[in-house]
């Protein structure tokens, strides 16, 4: 565990808690894509399969429970909570995210490190996490503007990915044979998807005008 990894996990936890608190307190999910949240729920469900079979540390188990709990409750709020569901932008949130799930599954069946059930699902979750933000970014462009909490959510998510890349660079230089191509490539692709969002986020912050 290095400072980049810890900061990355904290930023990631903070991003999902910001979103959950926003939806819970103002009972609105305007501007939020439920498809991205569903993809994240699938990512965590297929990646944290070992949560009940092997115990590593309190930290590890606690963080997995936070990510699983927050992503599933955000989906529950947006799908089944009456007040919140009313504010869901169904017409605009039309990304066909099941195609993302299918293509990531096929890719995981083709490219993985070992052909075992856990390994394929774990690789699938890496591929899916890389593209999970797409429905949210498309919704962002469609609705032309973004309320600051959703902007902060995406900003923090991007920050978590950036810190993970720093964590991998740090580990590459400090641990002898730390090489994980699939993790690195998927992590890089995911971070690049945030690049243009960061650009506009920074511009709006610099010019102190609404992000659109």
């Amino acid at each position: 565990m290095n400072i980049f990894r810890l900061a990355g996990d904290m930023t990631h936890m903070f991003s999902v808690l910001v979103l959950l608190l926003k939806i819970h307190t103002i009972k609105s999910c305007a501007g939020v894509s439920v498809k991205t949240q569903e993809l994240y729920a699938i990512v965590f469900a297929t990646r944290y399969l070992d949560i009940f079979t092997s115990f590593v540390s309190i930290y590890n188990t606690f963080m997995k429970l936070v990510f699983l709990g927050s992503s599933f409750s955000i989906v529950w709020y947006m799908r089944y909570h009456k007040a919140v569901h009313r504010t869901y932008d169904r017409e605009q949130d039309t990304f066909r995210h099941w195609f993302l799930v299918l293509s990531c599954l096929l890719l995981a069946l083709l490219i993985h490190e070992k052909f075992t059930f856990l390994e394929v699902l774990w690789t699938f979750s890496l591929y899916l996490e890389a593209v999970a933000i797409l429905p949210q970014l498309v919704l962002l462009q469609r609705t032309r503007n973004i309320d600051n909490l959703t902007g902060q959510y995406i900003f923090l998510l991007g920050g978590y990915r950036g810190l993970y890349i720093l964590n991998w660079i740090y580990r590459y230089f400090t641990e002898p044979h730390f090489v994980h191509w699939i993790t690195w490539i998927t992590g890089l692709v995911q971070t690049l998807l945030y690049a243009d969002f960061f650009y506009y986020y920074f511009l709006s912050w610099k010019n102190n005008k609404k992000l659109n």
């Binding site: 990894r5 996990d9 990631h12 990646r47 399969l49 070992d50 092997s54 590593v56 590890n60 963080m63 997995k64 990510f67 490190e113 070992k114 075992t116 856990l118 390994e119 774990w122 993970y164 964590n167 994980h180 993790t183």
Partner: peptide
């Protein structure tokens, strides 16, 4: 091994 990686990072 996968076990290690699954424990290693979130």
């Amino acid at each position: 091994p996968l076990q290690q990686r699954m424990h290693d990072e979130l």
